[in-house]
């Protein structure tokens, strides 16, 4: 499935210093639990969203498809431009989710992300994720033109690539297996104090 990592060259004093590629899911501890896509939600749900943010307990979602209730009822939405003031803005947000009798699939994407968490700016030309649950559970992310703190970052392509910054945790291509499916966040940013938690391009598929 989708897994492309075409990033502008240059990379990466920041990346070299901070990346810990291939971090096992189990090591993420509480990060994958809670409100945001990754560990929360019902195990069988199929849904997608452009951005889901929790700031001081307040949940805001952009381009949220909603959850599929029946195979005859695909869901989806889109926003040309959307923002959460002071936190994030993006363009061409899109999310869609659908199920069959034997499979579930979802996709989310956005362009021109500008995200600021705890004073650190994160930008990307494009972020997308896909999830499919059926006989197998697969997912992946596409991250293009990513910068963190103004420095270009090249994703490794490995799931759950952790980038640790002072007071901040960034995960690229976050993938979480659930009892009946998979959740993929192209980008997950969380402050270590737990006050801010942002998931970008979330695809969830469960059956």
């Amino acid at each position: 499935m989708l897994l492309r990592w075409r990033i502008a060259a240059g990379a990466a004093a920041l990346a070299a210093a901070c990346m810990a590629p291939g971090l096992a899911q189990a090591q993420l501890g509480g990060l994958v639990g809670g409100i945001l896509p990754g560990g929360g939600g019902s195990s069988g749900s199929t849904q997608a969203a452009g951005v889901t943010a929790v700031v001081a307990g307040v949940v805001t979602s952009l381009a949220n498809s909603g959850t599929v209730s029946d195979p005859s009822q695909p869901v989806g939405t889109g926003q040309t431009v959307a923002s959460i003031p002071g936190l994030v803005s993006a363009e061409a947000l899109h999310s869609a989710a659908m199920t069959w009798t034997d499979q579930a699939a979802s996709q989310a994407s956005l362009s021109n992300l500008a995200l600021t968490v705890a004073g650190t700016g994160i930008t990307a030309d494009f972020l997308g994720s896909e999830a499919v649950a059926g006989a197998t559970r697969t997912g992946g992310s596409a991250i293009e033109g990513l910068t963190i703190g103004g420095v270009a970052v090249t994703p490794t392509g490995v799931a759950n690539q952790l980038i640790s910054l002072p007071g901040l945790s960034v995960i690229l291509n976050e993938q979480t297996q659930t009892a009946s499916g998979i959740v993929v966040n192209a980008l997950r940013v969380r402050t270590l104090d737990g006050l801010t938690d942002v998931a970008v391009a979330t695809a969830r598929a469960g059956i």
Binding site: S72, G76, A92, A96, Q107, G128
Partner: peptide, 27 residues
């Protein structure tokens, strides 16, 4: 069936055009 997608193309001016789209049938 369904088609879904997002991304960008380079238009004739050399600028980017971003898109997000999906389509299919329902009800």
């Amino acid at each position: 069936d369904f088609i879904t997608g997002g991304g960008w193309v380079i238009v004739d001016s050399g600028a980017k055009a971003n898109f997000g789209a999906h389509g299919g049938c329902k009800n």
